[in-house]
């Protein structure tokens, strides 16, 4: 891996950046209870992360390693290639605190682009009761927890370190690292070979990766 960029987001801050296809984004929690809320917009600046499509095509109500983050138009935005946690919340959104909105505005986006987000390092548990009641889990993410995404097309990512909306804890800082794999056999950057041989991916995820490579990446 070649390190392209790294820096530390303090708690209750926001940041946005382009991530070229094939690069990886690694977030690291720097304190217990850290939260990193993320929005993603695809290469054409219209196609956004679609949480319902991501969940229903992979039969999951949480984000975990081995999932492809899918766009409104059925393309792969990024693959969760690794994480020390197997549950990242994506059901409870983020408070309208202007942090993400301001970052969206920097890139020419706005309120209409406040699509569903992922709350990395946070967990909201679901009860097996008639309403599927939700409870924030305060002791889920710890200092040192990480998650790595591989960009499957050119992306814009938007990250906020505001505390999770259901947390009463303090905002905590998160480190972000962008890297480029050293070898060109990476299936998204390489344009050769079959996409996504990773057996942990579901058939639907592999299909999204293949379509993305065929059409744009």
């Amino acid at each position: 891996m070649t390190l392209d960029h790294e820096h530390e987001l303090p708690g209750a801050a926001a940041w946005s950046a382009p991530v070229r296809a094939g690069r990886t984004v690694t977030l690291t929690a720097l304190a217990d209870g850290a939260n990193a809320t993320m929005l993603i917009i695809g290469a054409d600046r219209l196609d956004r992360l679609n949480i319902p499509d991501t969940l229903k095509s992979q039969m999951s109500a949480r984000i975990k390693p081995g999932m492809v983050l899918m766009s409104d138009r059925g393309l792969a935005l990024a693959t969760v290639t690794a994480s020390s946690l197997d549950w990242h919340d994506c059901l409870t959104g983020a408070l309208p605190d202007q942090l993400l909105l301001l970052e969206l505005t920097k890139h020419g986006f706005g309120e209409a682009d406040l699509h569903a987000c992922i709350n990395f390092f946070s967990k909201v548990s679901v009860a097996d009761d008639p309403r599927a009641s939700l409870t924030y889990v305060p002791d889920h993410g710890h200092a040192g927890d990480t998650v790595t995404l591989r960009a499957d097309q050119d992306l814009l990512i938007f990250v906020s370190t505001a505390p999770h909306a259901l947390s009463d804890g303090r905002a905590a800082s998160v480190a972000v690292r962008l890297e480029t794999p050293d070898h060109s056999e990476d299936h998204t950057g390489g344009h050769t070979g079959d996409p996504a041989p990773d057996p942990e991916l579901r058939e639907e995820a592999i299909r999204a990766l293949r379509l993305t490579r065929e059409l744009i990446a």
Binding site: T92, L114, A116, R131, L166
Partner: peptide, 27 residues
Amino acid sequence: DNRYSAFDTIREQRAVFLTTGSRLMST
């Protein structure tokens, strides 16, 4: 632009499913 938000609605009612009494919230 002040439109329905599924996940804000879910969070505000602390439950996934909607039924009588559910408040449909905007962004």
